[in-house]
């Protein structure tokens, strides 16, 4: 699969409190409402200008902090398909996989990508393409790919439970 979109580039250690503020975690439940607060405390222009297919680019330790899944769901609902980063905090990585947001660990691509340029991610060949060139990233494990292919953990589990019920 090829994902193609504009790059929104941010720095190191972007935490979940600025991706989706904690004060909304128990009173904003609709993903489309969550999207309106995406990156609110980091880049107040993001929510109004993001387009479906856009790609977020971060430095090291993207998504550190709280376990809040809304920090992934808000980006997904805003149309973001992938996060390319130097490294991704572990719960954020899991939440991304579980919600069908492709996590790409590729420090070289992060260094090369310019804000606003169009970036391509080829998930079969494990490369990121941007103006500066092509950059390989390590493939994900089969079990993680299976979850992403199903569109996330809950869709995968639904399919599995339905299959079990039918057999």
């Amino acid at each position: 699969m090829i994902l193609r979109g504009r790059a929104w580039k941010y720095g190191d250690d972007v935490n979940t409190d600025v991706i989706f503020p904690g004060k909304y975690t128990y009173n904003v439940n609709d993903p489309n409402e969550m999207a309106k607060h995406a990156l609110e405390d980091l880049d107040p222009t993001f929510a109004g200008r993001v387009q479906p297919g856009d790609i977020v680019v971060g430095g090291k330790n993207w998504g550190n902090g709280s376990s809040r899944e809304q920090a992934v769901v808000a980006l997904r609902a805003a149309g973001v398909t992938a996060v390319i980063a130097v490294s991704i905090a572990r719960i954020y990585f899991r939440n991304a996989v579980n919600n069908g947001l492709l996590p790409v660990i590729c420090p070289d691509a992060v260094a090369a990508i310019q804000p606003g340029e169009t970036v391509e991610i080829d998930t079969e060949r494990h490369v990121v393409r941007c103006v500066a060139g092509e950059f390989d990233f390590p493939p994900l494990s089969p079990s993680i790919n299976a979850i992403l292919a199903a569109g996330g953990l809950i869709p995968m589990l639904k399919a599995k439970l339905a299959a079990e019920a039918a057999s």
Partner: peptide, 23 residues
């Protein structure tokens, strides 16, 4: 995210997301 807390007593504690908890 602070579930590692339970390491104080020698348990394996790790944080997960909401969907994972449902699973």
């Amino acid at each position: 995210s602070h579930t590692p807390h339970f390491g104080w007593l020698g348990a394996f504690g790790a944080g997960v997301g909401r969907s994972e908890m449902a699973a």
